[in-house]
Computed example of a mutant assay.
Amino acid sequence: MAYFIPQQKHLTRHEIKKSSFIGIAQHAANRDEAMRFLADVKQAYPDARHHCWAYLFGSPAMPTGIAMADDGEPSGTAGKPILNVLQHNQVGDVMLVVVRYFGGIKLGAGGLVRAYSASAQLTLESLPVVDQVVMEQLQVRSDFKHEQYLRHFIERHHGQLIATSYSHEVTLALALPAAAVAPLHALAGSMGFTVHTAK
């Protein structure tokens, strides 16, 4: 379930039949962040004819949220092509806005679909990205003798130790990359500690 996310705001420009298309992408993990970004873009380009957009949250393979808008373009000619590009790439948690300055020559429905698709594709292909590793929240209960080994395991697998509590045993609240969960369960079976998914 690992995927890429935008590393920073990114902008591309291209022109088709005198219309200028500006593609702008940025990381957004929820609708509030995406709508704030859209408001910023509208403020930056207040005289543009259209501010069309789409977002995709979570992994592109299994998104947790998607939406789009044509912003005055004929239905299905702008937002849907942008979203289609997002759904066929490896970037998640992304908001992509395509700003259009009309150049006086009508493109027709097919021309608009191609233009918005091309702008979105150009923007995503050149977008600086970083790995987004899906972390799972777990709770481990163990004898004290295993604590140092478990701490070492968490560190070695690029996990995070969130909290530790002590009673007759040690309880560790932690977050691990999804790929490290099965090895931890295998260790639990051989070493005699318990692993639970955190509520």
Results as ranks from 00 to 15, higher is better:
140 V>A: 11
166 Y>F: 15
156 R>T: 09
21 F>P: 09
16 I>Y: 02
195 V>Q: 04
109 A>E: 13
181 V>N: 09
96 L>Y: 01
183 P>E: 04
111 G>N: 02
73 E>I: 03
93 D>F: 03
183 P>C: 08
138 L>C: 06
4 F>A: 11
16 I>H: 03
124 L>H: 07
14 H>M: 15
75 S>Y: 09
149 Y>T: 13
109 A>K: 15
151 R>M: 03
1 M>Y: 05
62 M>D: 12
86 L>A: 09
2 A>W: 02
133 V>S: 09
102 F>S: 08
123 T>E: 06
32 D>Y: 04
3 Y>L: 05
68 M>P: 02
162 I>A: 12
134 V>Y: 01
41 V>K: 09
29 A>D: 05
175 A>P: 02
163 A>D: 15
55 Y>P: 05
67 A>H: 13
189 G>W: 08
8 Q>W: 00
68 M>C: 06
50 H>L: 01
127 L>D: 00
99 V>W: 09
172 L>A: 10
158 H>E: 12
119 S>Y: 11
192 G>D: 06
159 G>V: 03
141 R>G: 03
184 L>S: 02
39 A>N: 14
133 V>G: 01
144 F>D: 11
6 P>A: 08
22 I>N: 13
166 Y>H: 15
137 Q>D: 15
155 E>G: 10
55 Y>A: 09
193 F>P: 15
123 T>A: 07
48 A>D: 06
120 A>D: 01
184 L>Q: 12
78 A>V: 00
123 T>Y: 03
158 H>F: 10
4 F>Q: 15
23 G>W: 09
79 G>R: 01
135 M>Y: 11
4 F>E: 13
156 R>A: 10
34 A>Q: 06
157 H>Y: 13
31 R>A: 14
122 L>I: 02
40 D>T: 11
52 C>H: 04
100 R>G: 10
167 S>R: 14
76 G>F: 05
49 R>D: 11
137 Q>L: 15
122 L>T: 12
41 V>L: 05
